[in-house]
């Protein structure tokens, strides 16, 4: 069963456009949604959640159309938006008491279990929580109302490496029983190397690739060669950099002829992101 099924999402702004965004996430997996700042991650997520109105396209969550079952589906979705705070002067306890009234399946026992597990003190004010703790609080809320899909926008941005690693471990433990699915956007690619099963890469409002992590990386080759060899592959490269040692460039695996005397390796996610961003610069 698909936890998320996004098809042909379009949204036009005066200076930015989301074009035909489509991707699917199977239930019980973690999908990393990567892209540079301003690539369209948050716009996609907000369109999915009906916070902004897409011009066209269809969003299905747990098999149901978001446009028609928004209220019902929000019972099953948990959110965490990095950098957005609500009622920061209120205590966790006060805020939770308001929130829990909205959810049919709220479970107080689950909530206290997660508070203990995440070491959250109910008497603290939201403003007193660190960035990592805020994400954990959002997770505790989401899991206590039985959310099956977690949509997290940049949950790890601004966290120190220890807090990030801790959070990624939590994500992995949440999907273990196959009930919960997670989509999280990030520009920190090392997070995805650690815990994502699938990667969806958005660049300049378009989905470049959406597939499982290994397959995603194997779609590309990172070429390292002498500057004199560059002309052999130049036209096929997504983008390249030249320095005193030669050139480094990214190419689609299918476009690369292994017979050439150019060293080809499988790129890291970060390298893929960087070379795609560079491609944009070339066209500007």
């Amino acid at each position: 069963m698909l936890a998320l099924d996004i098809r042909n999402l379009n949204k036009k702004y005066p200076n930015f456009e989301l074009r035909d965004v489509s991707f699917q996430l199977e239930k019980g997996y973690i999908m990393g949604f990567i892209g540079a700042n301003g690539a369209g991650k948050t716009t996609t997520i907000k369109s999915m959640l009906n916070l902004i109105q897409a011009d066209s396209g269809e969003v299905r969550i747990l098999g149901k159309k978001m446009a028609e079952h928004e209220t019902e589906l929000k019972q099953e979705i948990g959110f965490a938006f990095g950098g957005i705070d609500f009622y920061t002067r209120s205590k966790i306890k006060t805020l939770t008491d308001v929130i829990k009234k909205f959810y049919k399946n709220w479970n107080d026992d689950t909530y206290s279990t997660y508070l203990r597990r995440f070491k959250l003190d109910e008497n603290k004010k939201i403003a007193e929580l660190s960035a990592g703790m805020k994400v954990k609080y959002n997770l505790a809320i989401a899991l206590s109302h039985g959310a099956k899909v977690l949509i997290l926008d940049e949950p790890t941005s601004g966290l120190d490496p220890v807090a990030r690693d801790d959070l990624l471990d939590i994500f992995q433990s949440l999907v273990l029983d196959g009930e919960v699915s997670i989509l999280f956007s990030t520009h920190i690619t090392s997070d995805l190397e650690k815990c994502a099963d699938f990667i969806t890469f958005v660049d300049n409002g378009k989905i470049v690739n959406s597939s499982d992590k290994e397959h995603f990386r194997e779609t590309y080759r990172l070429l390292n060669g002498k500057e004199s060899d560059l002309h052999q592959v130049k036209d096929k490269l997504i983008s390249y950099k030249v320095n005193s040692f030669g050139f480094t460039g990214l190419i689609h695996a299918g476009d690369f002829d292994p017979a050439l005397d150019i060293r080809a390796t499988i790129p890291s996610l970060e390298e893929i992101m960087i070379f795609f961003a560079k491609k944009e610069e070339t066209y500007v």
Partner: peptide, 9 residues
């Protein structure tokens, strides 16, 4: 934003 996240129409 807070209200928009809640399951309310």
């Amino acid at each position: 934003m807070f209200t928009a996240m809640m399951p309310v129409s």
